[in-house]
Design a protein around this nucleic acid. Structure first.
Lengths: 202, 202
DNA sequence: ACCTGAACACCGTTCAAGT
DNA sequence: ACCTGAACACCGTTCAAGT
């Protein structure tokens, strides 16, 4: 006769990750305990060890899943809506910030630093939509020529900075929307706010 | 006869904070343990409780000290060197990023979110040099008019974003210098990189 | 007022042992 | 191959007790 709880038939790893995502959402990174995860999933406290050698390995796996979702969110945002450049960039930026504020604890894990190669790979991959936008912007002569990574890094800095300040509580929920809008406009045109002359792209 | 270790004659609180700063530098935020701090300072593990009700109180105090130092660093950077606007802004930004990379764990504590009112006060105070620069920039017509807080928030986002990405390891140490330079230039003039016409500021 | 010592509940990690 | 149970060393927090 089979057990009513049959060893999680091999998907314990994913069950732990799913439970961890839930725990992250309503507990923060410090509340995340391997033992509690094991308990919630109905397994002994030593069982996770087969799938995650230590706590950091679990966090790395979470970060990788997070970057995959972040990249997908941005890609979707770019694809949805019209093709006009500036609104597209706006949607991409908003997708990033929305992700970061919705899953604040997760993005903390993603950018925690103590990572493996695999995490860095996932991170680089997730930023592909941004890089593609830069390339397109250069083709449309919206951006200056030169290393697209350089421009991408500057763009990422603004967006991630906003997300980070929001998580820290230094930006109110109400300020978020227009701040992203303004930051993108400012990124494109600078603080001098010259009139929108010569911005008729294609 | 007096004890050779006389109860830390009332400065246990500061001794703990100093030791915590050291621990933060070579251990990160997770390595920071109240018990170890007490041990390092030569006091029982329950003694810190008189000065810090719980771990978070210690972290809050660290954050407040951190913001004070960050503000001072930026103020010094602004004061040192010539008064030309753009270089002054550059020095201020570099001071921020240097602080953030030198004391990466500390700035993590400072922006961790779970703060008290007092920490928010200290944070706002530390950003005063940035706000003053914005006001000066508006007076010199380098910035558009309107809410200086709005411009300050955008500027802070870029700078903090760079610092944050650096801590996460997504920006190499070698990329840091020119990225800050470029980000400030881009903040002022935008990505289009129009020639430097009409930028002759008084 | 300030600190100690023992106690409690919780961790992450390790390892022999089970099926 | 995958999981269990006991064990170890470490936490933060609490509280009666010392001086």
């Amino acid at each position: 006769m089979k057990l009513s709880r049959p060893y999680h038939h091999g998907n314990l790893r994913q069950a732990l990750l799913d439970q961890a995502m839930i725990a992250l959402r309503d507990g923060g990174i410090d509340e995340l305990s391997l033992r509690e995860l094991a308990r919630a999933v109905g397994v002994s406290h030593a069982a996770p060890r087969r799938h995650f050698p230590d706590r950091q390995a679990l966090l790395d796996a979470l970060a990788i899943e997070g970057f995959a979702r972040l990249g997908a969110d941005m890609r979707d945002a770019v694809a949805s809506g019209d093709r006009e450049f500036e609104p597209t960039l706006q949607r991409c930026a908003h997708a990033y910030v929305t992700f970061a504020t919705t899953d604040a604890a997760l993005i903390e894990v993603m950018f925690a630093g103590k990572h493996t190669e695999n995490v860095d790979e996932a991170a680089a991959l997730s930023f592909a939509p941004i890089l593609e936008l830069i390339l397109r912007g250069q083709a449309e002569h919206i951006f200056e020529d030169g290393d697209p990574e350089r421009i991408g890094l500057m763009l990422l800095s603004v967006i991630h900075g906003i997300a980070s300040l929001r998580s820290a509580g230094m930006i109110g929920p109400d300020q978020l929307e227009w701040l992203v809008d303004d930051a993108i406009v400012n990124f494109l045109r600078g603080t001098r706010a010259v009139a929108t002359e010569g911005v008729d792209v294609a």
